[in-house]
């Protein structure tokens, strides 16, 4: 637990190819905002003799967000960039909310969304939200490009499918149907054991049919329970085909709980964790469904704007 960082080599390549080459040669991680890496280096939780910065590579801070084309964010796009964007708030609300609720807000000005997804920190919020939006990561490495679903990205605590020298250049969330809504919520807790995490977070995405009477698609994600967020397909199956209502959301939440293992061996802690988790999931799904139902952004308008633009 140092007060300052230990020395390291530092490279500032100006192209992705150069960055990949440097990272491979030095077996070095990439650094973007540094919001996760810098504190962990200072605390000696990680030791890295060499870092490769993406700061000077042009183009990585491009982003586009549109109901028709989806959300595409370059590796350097910081969380606060999403906040004023109208379609981010309306059509990708779960990620927008997670960005809005980053603590402290300053982090949103520094940390990139892709960096947050790549860090593999179990309690982070953005992976939970992005997973509910079916996010996929565009990975570039020496062997070429590949696309990895966020769901398949995490392999262990702080570990991902990336090998050294592979870099995520962008994250993409596909467009979804008009009557869709998403939502993100979290609850802070006190850690009780060494395996415990200090919060719970959840995100959901609900799509309704054209009459807005039945759920035709749903994604339910819970994070901060294990080393990574998970999608709960049993809960989604509870929702799909049904009319949205409070009891249904509770059943969906219970379907998630049925798959969860206790985190600690303290009975009272687990009882309250499960109880809070149930409320969190239920309310998150309810909010997503309510947004789907309200359809406050007529999809047709978006189509016109897109045509005007093209």
């Amino acid at each position: 637990m140092g007060r300052v960082l230990l020395p390291f080599e530092f490279y500032e390549p100006e192209s992705v190819a150069e960055a990949i080459d440097l990272a491979r040669r030095h077996s070095a991680p990439f650094i973007m905002g540094g919001c996760t890496l810098v504190p962990s280096l200072r605390r000696r939780q990680r030791r890295e003799p060499c870092l490769v910065s993406l700061a000077r590579i042009p183009g990585l801070d491009d982003f586009s967000i549109h109901p028709r084309t989806g959300m595409r964010l370059g590796a350097k796009v910081v969380a606060s960039a999403l906040l004023p964007h109208i379609w981010a708030g309306k059509r990708f609300a779960a990620l927008h909310e997670a960005c809005e609720q980053l603590y402290p807000p300053h982090i949103g000005n520094m940390g990139s969304i892709v960096g947050n997804l790549c860090s593999g920190v179990p309690y982070f919020d953005l992976p939970t939200a992005a997973m509910a939006l079916d996010a996929e990561l565009h990975v570039t490495g020496q062997g070429g490009d590949r696309v990895v679903k966020l769901e398949d990205f995490y392999t262990a605590k702080f570990q991902t499918v990336l090998s050294r020298g592979e870099v995520v250049t962008q994250v993409f969330c596909p467009p979804h149907k008009a009557d869709s809504g998403s939502s993100f919520k979290k609850i802070y807790r006190s850690r009780r054991t060494i395996d415990d995490l200090h919060k719970l977070n959840a995100a959901a995405m609900v799509t309704l049919d054209e009459d807005r009477a039945r759920i035709i698609d749903a994604r339910v994600v819970l994070g901060s329970w294990s080393f990574r967020p998970h999608r709960y397909r049993a809960a989604e199956a509870v929702l799909v085909g049904e009319a949205p209502n409070f009891d249904l959301f509770e059943q969906a939440a219970d379907a998630v709980l049925a798959e969860l293992d206790p985190v600690t061996d303290l009975a009272w802690v687990e009882k309250t964790r499960f109880a809070q988790c149930r409320v969190l999931l239920r309310d998150t799904i309810a909010q997503a469904a309510s947004r789907a139902k309200s359809r406050h952004d007529p999809f047709e308008d978006a189509a016109e704007i897109l045509e005007d633009a093209s």
Partner: peptide, 17 residues
């Protein structure tokens, strides 16, 4: 301010937790 009961480690030792 909670300690892990097996290791005695301070669990909430940052202004985040």
């Amino acid at each position: 301010f909670v300690l892990d009961q097996k290791t005695g480690e301070v669990l909430n030792d940052t202004l985040l937790t």
